[in-house]
Design a protein around this nucleic acid. Structure first.
Lengths: 188, 188
DNA sequence: CGAGTGATGTCAGTCCATGACATCACTATA
DNA sequence: TATAGTGATGTCATGGACTGACATCACTCG
């Protein structure tokens, strides 16, 4: 038997989600989370920068997927098509975890501070995609705007997908959002 | 002479901006801010929910302006035109305070936590505009997307306007961003 | 003139977050 | 196989953000 139980990070993530659901984010202390995971408060803060981050750490590899997809998109694609391809590529990751996504989102929706963090993560995704677009030769402003538009389309679609009682096709919802954005701007 | 010096809130705002600029957000304690304003820490927290909010409280009346502008837009206007009109209406408020905007933005750009708060405020603006659009009969999804697009256009334009050494026409920058968004989506 | 009222102060307490240092199973290598 | 790391974790101390409960006291109003 090894010295420590494996997957400390995963145990902390699970304990945190449980406690945030049971008593709400503010009522759950870091000490409690750590205890439930069989660790100490200090160790919690070695894995996660703060009490909120524990709900978002898993997103870090999404960013990589988005960036790689844009980097490998066909040269013929327009900026918004590259972004759409990236969003599409990540769909399976979400569809495998619909229930977890619902639980997690309910916790976030109940707390301003968590919504803040979610927006920051979204912003980071947009910035990373913009950067990837720039490396494909897209001008700075167009890259930023295309990435932001993509994030909006995804966010809108994701919100509907998460809150839907029966599971819908996330890809289709994303495409619908992009089409609607196109219609809105064209109509001006 | 009245019992207290007037404008406690304003004094706190100014003291906070000064200290955040002098030593950075993390190094400035609330106690110091309150002392510089001739008050106590406890009073700071009566005016502002937390240490970040002091930089954003002033935006609260912007929201009102956006909402009113959309409420009074001509019935013939499209959703995105209503949003553009709202953004346009707020331009003078910013143009009167270019230097303050620069100082404030420098502080925010230097601190993740403040960027988070800024995103939350932006999100609140988008939500308020979406709501105003809904009351003008726009469907829920279109209202949300149009408001978000408007916020992106504004954010992009504002970033350029703030960082520009010589003062540019913010209205023009906003219109340019909207045009670029239109081009990006149309090209898909 | 006395009873509020409201902005501010005082005090005690909780929890988040971090730095410094200790522990000790495991590993590598001489 | 002895020994010197190594790294994940624990322990301890501390500071600072935030909150609730209660005190103060110039001002106002009847």
């Amino acid at each position: 038997m090894s010295r420590w139980k494996p997957d400390a990070r995963g145990r902390l993530e699970q304990a945190a989600l449980e406690l945030y659901r049971e008593r709400g984010f503010d009522q759950a202390t870091v000490t409690e989370i750590a205890e439930r995971a069989g660790l100490t408060e200090r160790t919690f803060f070695r894995y996660f920068a703060d009490k909120r981050e524990v709900l978002f750490w898993g997103q870090s590899h999404l960013l990589e997927l988005y960036v790689n997809t844009i980097a490998n998109a066909p040269a013929s694609a327009s900026p918004i098509e590259m972004v759409a391809a990236a969003l599409e590529a990540a769909v399976p990751i979400f569809e495998e975890r619909h229930e977890l996504a619902q639980q997690r989102q309910a916790v976030i929706d109940a707390h301003r501070g968590l919504q803040e963090r979610e927006l920051l993560k979204r912003n980071a995704l947009a910035a990373a995609m913009a950067n990837a677009l720039r490396q494909r030769g897209v001008s700075d402003t167009i890259a930023r705007l295309a990435a932001e538009i993509g994030v909006i389309a995804f966010t809108t679609a994701y919100a509907r997908w998460v809150s839907a009682p029966s599971e819908q096709d996330l890809s289709r919802l994303i495409r619908e959002s992009l089409d609607q954005i196109k219609a809105i701007t064209a109509g001006a």
